[in-house]
Design a protein around this nucleic acid. Structure first.
Lengths: 238, 238
DNA sequence: AACGGTAGGTGTACGCCGTATACCTGTCAA
DNA sequence: TTGACAGGTATACGGCGTACACCTACCGTT
């Protein structure tokens, strides 16, 4: 076996093998010590070899996120919306907890990855199947924030666009491409529904401040209710 | 003026001047292009000069966070808790919006900085002054997550501890030092109250899964209520 | 059987990064 | 006058992402 030198001794690289190795490496040693060099070493390969399969490190991270998000359970088609959402979110939480680096990675990426969008789209679909208007579904998505993904974050916060200056650059927010609407129909619907007076667009087309206060007030109202009815930890087993 | 060479031509460095310059640089060019070298250049100084005033880049980031969090309005002592919290959170949001890099910076730090802890402590205090038990105040802090800071995040998520492996390392969670209790009395109280059966500790002493579901159910209940009462965007001006 | 193209792994190099270490210089107390 | 010390400097190291040129084993075509 040592004879057959150089021919097919080591299994060939592939985007998939790279992503899995990257996820495993991040799980074991933390995201901050995931470098192209370390990853290549783990795969028994020279760093530049990776670049034949992923464009750069950012794309690698996106791929890793998609691996994790792909582990979230599929929706149960027949359940009541509330139960369906609850289960789905808890499944997301489990998936993300297996990969503690994932929340920070998701937050730090500039745009949501396809798998994340697909997941969000299907959650919106569940709300709508439960009779929610596109309008309400939209606010509700903001309210849940990244809790929908099993952690917490304002997913659509425009100011988060990591790179450039805090000065809200007045780039004309491109209308969302038709291919987007085809792939993520529910997201597209709430996005266009959100275009109150603004242009129709996914990100800055909605009123961030309103969404924030909507969520905040919903929380405060819920908290007030608990307080008024004298909640104690005895209620734990609800 | 050109004669008086070298004596006091440039204003001397100081930790404060460094932090302010760092915040300004991050505001203008984004956190990812804030390097010790760029910052030093902006200050007309050699990179290593910074290290006489800050220990390393992590400490610099902590200092920057404290600058931002320090801009949050002080609490209004006499207001109803709900109004007080609401205003405070919206003030936090404004402060953070002036520095779009701040949320990600806060999230990526391993531990909360003193200014963040002080702010959280005073929010807990507001809840308790409004008649909340330490117990309920604790859950409520989790529920609001980093929305309390004007964005959104599970502040106490143990799995977030960026560095090490995802395997929940069973380090004995050190009892919180008495000096902590002195500086952040309200936090200390809800932390010890959270030690249901566990050891008394700030982080892992509480049941993350319970806190997550508590918040999730509060949200879902609130959402259900909106849905049942036929909420539409006509309610916007509440 | 010979051959040219190509997919995929390699080697080297560049410009960044954070920061350890040693050094210098101006100020000020004794 | 001296000498300690605070604070700015110079140099250097190891690590990072990745551009670019190369090499090589395989393949379909002729």
């Amino acid at each position: 076996m040592a004879e057959q030198a150089g021919t097919l001794r080591r299994t060939p690289l592939s985007r998939d093998r790279i992503l899995r190795a990257a996820v495993a490496l991040a799980d074991e040693t933390g995201i901050e010590s995931l470098s192209m060099r370390n990853l290549a070493h783990d795969l028994g390969v020279v760093p530049m070899a990776l670049y034949k399969h992923v464009a750069n490190k950012d794309e690698l991270l996106d791929g890793m996120i998609d691996v994790v998000v792909g582990q979230i359970d599929a929706p149960e088609p027949d359940a009541h919306w509330k139960d369906a959402i609850r289960r789905r979110v808890l499944s997301a939480r489990e998936a993300l907890r297996r990969h503690p680096w994932a929340p920070l990675a998701i937050e730090s990426r500039t745009m949501a990855t396809p798998a994340v969008l697909a997941y969000l789209d299907s959650v919106v679909g569940t709300f709508q199947a439960g009779g929610f208007s596109a309008d309400l579904a939209h606010h509700v998505m903001h309210t849940m924030g990244s809790r929908i993904l099993g952690f917490s974050q304002e997913l659509f916060d425009a100011s988060r666009r990591a790179g450039r200056s805090g000065t809200t650059n007045p780039e004309p927010p491109a209308a969302l491409p038709p291919e987007f609407a085809a792939r993520f129909p529910h997201l597209a619907e709430i996005a266009t529904a959100a275009a109150h007076d603004d242009q129709s667009v996914v990100g800055p087309g909605c009123d961030d401040q309103f969404e924030f206060e909507f969520a905040l007030d919903l929380l405060l109202d819920g908290i007030e209710r608990l307080h008024q009815q004298g909640w104690t930890s005895a209620h734990r087993h609800r």
